[in-house]
Amino acid sequence: MAVSKKESMLVNEDGMEEESDMGDDLSDSELEQESDEEGDVELTEPSKNAIYNKDGLLDKLGDMSWPENAKWVDKLTVDIEQEQPVDVNDDLTRELAFYTQALNGTRMAFEKLQSMGLPFLRPEDYYAEMVKSDSHMEKNQKLKERAKQKKESIESVKKWRKQRQQSGFAGGDKGSELDSAFEDGKPFEKSSNKRTGVAPGDRTGGKAKYAGKGKKPKKREIKDTKFGYGGRKGSKKQNVAETTNDLRGFNKEDGFSRNKKKMM
């Protein structure tokens, strides 16, 4: 297939060009590069040497399309006007646009079918093979029920809490705190500090991570050789006479930039 080969050649060429472009950018200015990185990797400008043979396309369309006498019932197509340009990245509006298109389309199609006097709705007693199996649909049903139950339970708890608050019970304000935790959706998350009431340096009684195997994983070993393992950290971090006036490790701009970010 000559065409595909040719295509791949083209792609290669494009890639080469872009590579060289990237190299130039790096050497020119790094700041610009940084700002570019935020955006997607997409051609904003259309490539100029793309083929677009309009006459050929229309000719082909004429060749392949059905004869004039093909009725609408053969095609069952409906064209729907899109009210406004849809934002692709907004999932909700996009899906809504598709839904409304389908809904309007079916309405129009059904009206047409009705005017033709054709049966188009499936009677209640018409049983036939479906696209999805019964077991699959059962699973679906279970999932739905479970979601519903969960929702109900949460709502009932909320209701009960509200009632308690209204009744003037002493623990009212505490309840509201709990409520907010509930709404986060992670009510049963573990607290970040694992062991309470134990000195921070104490490693006794820690979790025996590799107890079963008796051997560390290889990655851990490598990391330990690289960064060191065990011993007290405190003494390493203290200043000594040589380091008191050494400000090389101190980054002046760091704090500033961090503040700036916060302001933003």
């Binding site: 095609k75 069952l76 197509t77 729907i80 899109q82 499936r122 036939a128 479906m130």
Partner: peptide, 18 residues
């Protein structure tokens, strides 16, 4: 969650920018 008959003829809707 939907399901439909296997082999029923679909209605085809196209957006107008086709």
């Amino acid at each position: 969650t939907g399901n439909h008959l296997k082999g029923s003829r679909p209605l085809l809707t196209f957006s107008s920018n086709f």
